[in-house]
Amino acid sequence: MTSMSEMTYRDALNLALKEEMRRDPSVVLWGEDVALYEGSFKVTRGLLAEFGEERVRDTPISENTIVGVAVGAAMGGLRPVAELMTVNFALLAMDQIINHMAKIRYMFGGQTYLPMVVRMPGGGGSQLAAQHSQSLESYFMHCPGLHIAYPSTPADAKGLLKSAIRDNNPVIFLEHELLYNSKGEVPDDPDFLVPFGRANVVRTGTDVTIVAYARMSILALQAAAELEKEGISCEVIDLRTLCPLDTETFIASARRTGRAVVVEECWRTAGLGGDIAHRIHEACFDSLLAPVRRVAGLDVPMPYSRKIEKICIPQAETIADAVREVVSRKS
């Protein structure tokens, strides 16, 4: 029996960083306020004290350079883990992320590789208004050359971050701000890894497949529990990584259930849910009993007021409504 400890998503990430830094001296970490201040979200608590200022470093507020220095350091033989204070600030680093980090291996003919991670908290729901509430996962997913992880549970947070640090590809590691305090059982094994590209069937069911990721998986599970009372059996798939994308798992599931709902927190227009829904339609057309439904963020800049912010982000109830609609459709 694997020994487990209950901890928060935040502490699971912290543990992953500590374990990997203990394991490999080439793992170094930097970002705005990650050392002395121990991180805006306290994910890097205790790291400066344990590993010292050569390995855990505060940086200037220079996001593009935070990523670019990591690109260079990775090329020079280190495994840097850079933190951007939030995903919103990644937009200042898009030149290094898209034009450099994602391209260098390819445009240099495979002669180098970038074992680096860029961590970034994101997502909405904290009344932080338009510039601090964005979900930009589709932006990254659009660009080949990046691996992208977005955990939903403390165990996945630990296992995916450890895999990300050991990955020889550049990884965008997204963390949801509203999940930092969520608790769960996490394996104590310092070699516990969650592999990339393997979705997690977090609930099995027979009537409908819900494809989700990160906080949307948690909400999908809440919706599924509610729908069970109505006699609707939902299979919930947590993607875990958006690249590689485990298409096999959700396609096999949708083929079996004949119905699918795709949930994403990002804006609907050109969002990743459209791509996933299309993959299901293409692969499962003959098995589908209803068109695939999408539940997504509203196509608006995020408003501040909590009353209207709420309607911009998918909720368990909006997911449940979409499932009811898909299931009620007669084939």
């Binding site: 593009n64 350079t65 990523v67 670019g68 220095v69 990591a70 690109v71 260079g72 350091a73 990775a74 090329m75 020079g76 033989g77 280190l78 840097p80 030149d95 290094q96 034009n99 450099h100």
Partner: peptide, 13 residues
């Protein structure tokens, strides 16, 4: 684009 990458290589060295 090469500025921060040079800085990173220097850091690694």
């Amino acid at each position: 684009g090469q500025f921060p990458i040079a800085v990173g290589l220097a850091f690694a060295a």
